[in-house]
């Protein structure tokens, strides 16, 4: 009845299973390496030809082989920063509402609806922006702002399609990212911290601004950077509303261009080897920037988790 407990000499499935899953986990690292390799090798010809001058040159005319990345880099950062300026207060407001103000029964549904904003495909935002938001901008908002044309932001003719509309659309798209991460880190603020503030005679808002937000600031910053990274890479919606004109301008009324949109517009039609290689190099720039943003956000959130749980219990 007592069977042997000795290992039989058969094929060791246990090890095979572990090794097999490990190999598939390794494939993620391989994929990362392939992405980096392909982007570098395909952009090689462009780099050999234009070097770092590519980044600082401002002319773009594929027909006469003029390739300058600066207008796209400018457009990408300008729209993303504007989007962040719009989205940050709204996102923090939503997070504060959901953690501090809303009755408990309302938190779930509202939180879910805000998250649904992130689920709507980029294309649908683009379509809505193109046919709904851009006309509103052109007819109502931009003419109003044009009174302040002594500011560099509101110069020129209100076109509707341009940097402003693109920034607003992107702001809506990154709002759920920032607000849901902020909400999560605010939840981790221990109740004793809030009670400490209340016991000192703080108002509810003072508890939020002086206790909750400072306590969770590195996590919120992580969410902001993650949202910014999303904004930089946002493609279809921006392509449909930004006006697709490579220029460096401060005016929000003017059309612009981003790295992602020039890729969307020109990649399929690029037949010249150099043109293609230049586009891949733009993709590489976008890739490197978003990797940096993501890594920074991850490190911040990771630190927040350790710090939060360390002092939480």
């Amino acid at each position: 009845m007592a069977g042997s407990i000795k290992r039989s000499g058969k094929f060791d499935i246990e090890r095979a299973f572990r090794g097999g899953t490990a190999a598939l986990a390794l494939s993620v690292l391989v994929l990362g390496a392939i992405i980096v390799y392909e982007l570098f090798s395909s952009s090689g010809p462009a780099f050999d030809r234009f070097g770092f001058g590519f980044i600082t040159s401002r002319d773009w005319d594929p027909v006469s082989e003029l390739y300058g990345a600066l207008p796209f880099i400018w457009g990408t950062f300008y729209t993303s920063i504007l989007a962040l300026v719009i989205a940050l207060p709204l996102s923090l407001g939503i997070a504060v509402f959901l953690t501090e103000l809303a009755p408990v029964w309302l938190r779930g549904p509202i939180g879910f609806m805000v998250e649904l904003l992130a689920a709507i495909p980029s294309l649908v935002y683009g379509l809505w922006g193109l046919f709904v938001l851009a006309p509103i901008m052109q007819e109502h908002i931009q003419p109003f702002l044009a009174q302040y044309d002594y500011l560099p932001f509101f110069k020129g003719y209100p076109l509707g399609l341009g940097i402003m509309t693109a920034s607003v659309i992107v702001a809506i798209m990154i709002l759920p990212t920032i607000s849901s991460i902020s909400r999560e880190v605010m939840y981790t603020v221990p109740e004793t911290q809030r009670e400490g503030g209340l016991a000192l005679g703080m108002t509810r808002w003072e508890v939020v601004s002086k206790v909750v937000i400072p306590y969770s600031r590195s996590g919120i910053l992580g969410g902001v950077i993650l949202g910014f990274g999303r904004a930089l890479g946002e493609t279809m919606a921006v392509t449909m509303v930004i006006g697709n004109t490579p220029q460096i301008t401060m005016s929000l009324f003017d059309p612009g261009y981003t790295i992602a949109s020039v890729l969307a517009n020109e990649f399929a039609e690029a037949t010249e080897k150099v043109h293609l290689s230049v586009l891949v190099e733009l993709g590489l720039i976008l890739f490197v920037i978003s990797i940096l943003m993501n890594s920074a956000a991850k490190l911040l959130l990771w630190r927040m988790n350790r710090y939060g749980s360390g002092s939480g219990s």
């Binding site: 990362g32 392909e38 982007l39 090798s41 890479g233 890729l263 890739f287």
Partner: peptide, 24 residues
């Protein structure tokens, strides 16, 4: 490192995935 790379890849813009598939 697998976790970290997966996290970072999750943030790669969709259009960059298109470029990689194009090159591959």
């Amino acid at each position: 490192s697998v976790r970290f790379v997966a996290d970072v890849l999750a943030g790669v813009p969709a259009i960059v995935a298109g470029i990689v598939a194009y090159a591959l």
